[in-house]
C-alpha cells in the first residue's frame, strides 16, 4: 500500500470532515490516573467506615461494581458504571443512557425472580412487588485486555436492584451483561420452579455462571448432557457434562465476533435434598473434572475456574 497516495487522497476529503475534526472538543474529561487510583481507595474507606472491616472486605472482594446505594436507582447504576473507571483494567467508560426499564422489571419479576432464585435470596413476592427494579444502561466501554477478558464496545447491561425497605436505598444485586433474562427460555430464566434435581441443578448453575460470565460474554446459555444421579440418604450426587454457549468477541480470531462458541466441563454436584425434593441451597457443592482424559477426577471447585476478576 502506498501510504503517500492514501495520505494525499485523505487530504482531499470534503471540508465538512475537517471542520468537524477542528471544532470537536469533548465536553467530558476522563479520570486522570491519580483519580483512577483514588476512586476505589475512597470507596474502600467509605465502605469500611460505614459497614465495618470484615463486612467491607467481603463486599469489596465480591462486588464487581463499586456502588453507592441511593434512593435513586438510576443514580446507583450510573455511579456504579462511572466507578468502573477506577478499575485498573478499565480504559474508558462512557455512559450513554441509564433508565428504569419498567417492561423488563415486570417480565423479570414474573418470569425469573419468582422461583428458586428468589427463594434462595429470601425474596418474597410481596417484597419483589415493591422493592425490585431492572435498570437498563447503555454505555461504551474499553478494557485493557492484558488484564481482563471483559468485552468492550457498545454494551447494553441490565442491572437488577433491590430496595432496603427501611432506608429506601437501592442496591445492585446482579447484572446481566447483554443477556435479556426475561427472554431466556432456560429453566433458570423464568420457568416455574424446578422440580427434578437435574432441573434445580440446572437453575442453580445457570444463575452461578450468569453471575460469573455475563460481565464478559453475551448470549450465555447452557446445556446438561449425560446426566447421572445417585442418592445416599438425603444426599444426591450427580455427574454430567455442562456446556456453556456464548457469543465470541473476536479477541483472538476476528471472525469469531458474534459467533456462538461453546465450552464443556464434566461436573459432579452434591447436595442435600429436603423432604419435598427441593435442594437445600447451602449444601450444594460442585466440582469439575480436572483431567482431560481417562476416568474423571472431580477435585476442582468450579468457582476456581471462573474468571479472575470475580475476585476483584
Amino acid at each position: 500500500m502506498n501510504t503517500k497516495t492514501f495520505s494525499e487522497a485523505l487530504g482531499e476529503i470534503d471540508g465538512k470532515y475537517i471542520e468537524s475534526a477542528i471544532s470537536y472538543q469533548a465536553e467530558r474529561s476522563y479520570f486522570s490516573p491519580t483519580r483512577r487510583w483514588l476512586l476505589p481507595l475512597a470507596a474502600a474507606i467509605m465502605t469500611l467506615l460505614l459497614v465495618g472491616t470484615a463486612a467491607a472486605a467481603a463486599i469489596m472482594l465480591r462486588d464487581l461494581w463499586i456502588q453507592k446505594p441511593s434512593v435513586d436507582p438510576v443514580e446507583v447504576v450510573r455511579s456504579a458504571l462511572e466507578n468502573q473507571a477506577g478499575k485498573e483494567y478499565t480504559l474508558n467508560i462512557e455512559v450513554n443512557s441509564v433508565e428504569i426499564d419498567e417492561a423488563e422489571t415486570a417480565q423479570v419479576r414474573e418470569r425469573f425472580i419468582k422461583g428458586i432464585i428468589a427463594d434462595r435470596r429470601g425474596w418474597s413476592d410481596e417484597y419483589l412487588a415493591g422493592h425490585f427494579l431492572v435498570v437498563r444502561a447503555d454505555y461504551y466501554a474499553e478494557y485493557d485486555h492484558t488484564q481482563t477478558t471483559r468485552a468492550d464496545g457498545e454494551v447494553t447491561m441490565y442491572f437488577y436492584l433491590t430496595q432496603d425497605a427501611d432506608s429506601g436505598d437501592w442496591t445492585i444485586v446482579d447484572n446481566s451483561g447483554n443477556v435479556n433474562w426475561s427472554e431466556d427460555d432456560s429453566p433458570a430464566a423464568g420457568a416455574p420452579a424446578a422440580q427434578t434435581v437435574e432441573e434445580q441443578l440446572f437453575a442453580y448453575l445457570s444463575d452461578l455462571y450468569n453471575r460469573a460470565y455475563s460481565p464478559y460474554y453475551d448470549g450465555l446459555r447452557y446445556q446438561i448432557d449425560d446426566y447421572e444421579e445417585t442418592t445416599d440418604g438425603d444426599t444426591v450426587t450427580a455427574t454430567f457434562l455442562w456446556t456453556m454457549y456464548y457469543l465470541g468477541k473476536g479477541w483472538d480470531v476476528g471472525a469469531d465476533e458474534g459467533v456462538e462458541q461453546q465450552v464443556s466441563q464434566s461436573l459432579q454436584a452434591k447436595a442435600v435434598v429436603d423432604e419435598n425434593g427441593a435442594i437445600v441451597p447451602e449444601t450444594i457443592s460442585v466440582l469439575a473434572d480436572e483431567r482431560a482424559v481417562g476416568d474423571p477426577v472431580y477435585s476442582t471447585s468450579i468457582e476456581e475456574t471462573f474468571p479472575d476478576q470475580l475476585g476483584d
Binding site: L10, I13, A26, E27, L91, N92, D144
Partner: peptide
C-alpha cells in the same frame, strides 16, 4: 491521520486516555 496530532493531543481533545 489528517492533522497528524500526537496521542496526547488527541486524548486532550476527546477526553479519552492516551492508551485508549
Amino acid at each position: 491521520y489528517w492533522f497528524s496530532d500526537s496521542y496526547a493531543e488527541i486524548a486532550a481533545r476527546t477526553g479519552i486516555p492516551e492508551k485508549s
